[in-house]
Nucleic acid binder design. Structure first.
Lengths: 242, 242
DNA sequence: CAGTTAAAATTGGCATACCAAATTTAGGTT
DNA sequence: AACCTAAATTTGGTATGCCAATTTTAACTG
């Protein structure tokens, strides 16, 4: 195990907190106590405390002590990005982004539509540059979330795209697409979505977004099926839209 | 400023990274360099490095150096929970959870339905205990997200509920409800949702969940309108469901 | 000159020691 | 006994020093 020691100590402290059933607000044993308990220097315990402090689990007060700030259960370990397959991710996007698009149709402004049109034009113009096309794609989807004027909806969409961009599995798949003609298909999808948004059609926008991501799913499925047998574990039954 | 020093140093280092336009993978100046630059001990710089390491911005390798692991821009600062009003939050839940419920209707199992029924019974039995009723409420909603069998959908729903539970504004409102009869109404809503899930009706589940959260919105709106003028800033036009 | 090896320098890892803020205790005053 | 004050203690804050892994340099060998 070539891990940095403070992380190990931090984990041990978490276990100690659990064992002693500490409640939020309770005072933790001092750094010195843990140091002796684990047989390490106080420096290491202090580093572990900093880790837990940044994770918002504890609060450290000079001269006074350290206190439990949150429950361990609220320390939701978000699923590791790399543990989520591209198809599960696309399904989540399909469910959530179609709902967001439907909501956006109700609150979208002329200025939003204007920006979406500009981004769409950019997508068409940048067909040869994978990087720029991808970034315009992202921009298009996030603009829709922004049009809901709801911070949390934008935040949710942003999280999904961040996960996508940092998922190595997805990059593998995406690399295979760059020279294909699928981008053209997707731009047409985007046009459909924009049309529905212009009409302020809630159900229309929902369906257009759903269909768009359905197309993306189909494309990636075909590619991974024929060329990349390593995605087996990530492929599972896909429910259909009624 | 009573802040812990290592945070200040960490922030300064972030600024230095920005100023020197470091790219991902580049090597950072050594701890000793920063220590001299800021006129502090290496211990503090090391603590700051630990902070940045936990934030996943840098990677520290013994004997070699520290390296930039992520871009500064990807250090997305999520919107502060307290900045999001209860109504904006409810709207987000309405949009997202109704979509999740619709998806759940397609993949729900008998075992899921069984668990939902038990939780529903618990809600009815715990009408007098605010805490337990609330926790059963949460459980009911999260079980639905779990029934989608999609990690990210469950993760999204969990995040929303965590935000709710840690939002002081919401607790204020919730405190006013405890002795009212609204819980009964909400349990009826839950029954409707469960009925639709049993029928595996996608649109039925979507509408039932939407209506449920619409009812919650109405209730809270009425309460805040008559008794709590301090929520003005958070109340905004609510789009209607078609 | 190329490749190999070992010594030297660099860099982070960890521990010890002392400092300063906060808290607790002990003593004195009313 | 109640209250205030100050000393002693506790607790986290910071600095210095030495250790160990890694990288770089230099010397050696063919």
């Amino acid at each position: 195990m070539a891990e940095r020691l403070y992380r190990e100590i931090g984990q041990k402290i978490r276990l100690e907190i659990e064992k002693s059933a500490l409640q939020v607000g309770d005072k933790l044993p001092t750094e010195r106590v843990y140091a002796e308990l684990f047989g390490v220097s106080r420096t290491l315990v202090r580093e572990a405390f900093i880790m837990l402090e940044i994770e918002d689990l504890i609060e450290v007060r000079k001269g006074s002590g350290s206190y439990l700030k949150n429950t361990l259960s609220s320390q939701t370990s978000l699923p590791e990005i790399s543990d989520v397959g591209p198809f599960e991710m696309l399904q989540a996007r399909q469910v959530l982004e179609s709902a967001i698009a439907a909501q956006a149709a109700l609150s979208i402004t002329k200025a939003d539509i204007q920006k979406l049109q500009e981004t769409l034009a950019l997508e068409g113009a940048e067909l040869n540059s994978v990087e720029k096309a991808n970034s315009a794609d992202r921009e298009f989807h996030l603009l829709i979330a922004k049009a809901t004027q709801n911070t949390l909806l934008l935040d949710t969409a942003t999280r999904l795209w961040e996960m996508r961009d940092s998922n190595p599995m997805w990059h593998q798949l995406h690399a295979r697409i760059k020279d294909s003609s699928y981008h053209g298909q997707w731009i047409d999808d985007h046009k459909d979505i924009l049309t529905q948004l212009k009409k302020r059609s809630e159900s229309g926008a929902r369906q257009a977004m759903w269909q768009h991501l359905e197309n993306v799913k189909q494309t990636l499925f075909a590619l991974s099926d024929t060329e990349a047998p390593d995605f087996d574990g990530y492929i599972f039954a896909q429910p259909n839209k009624s």
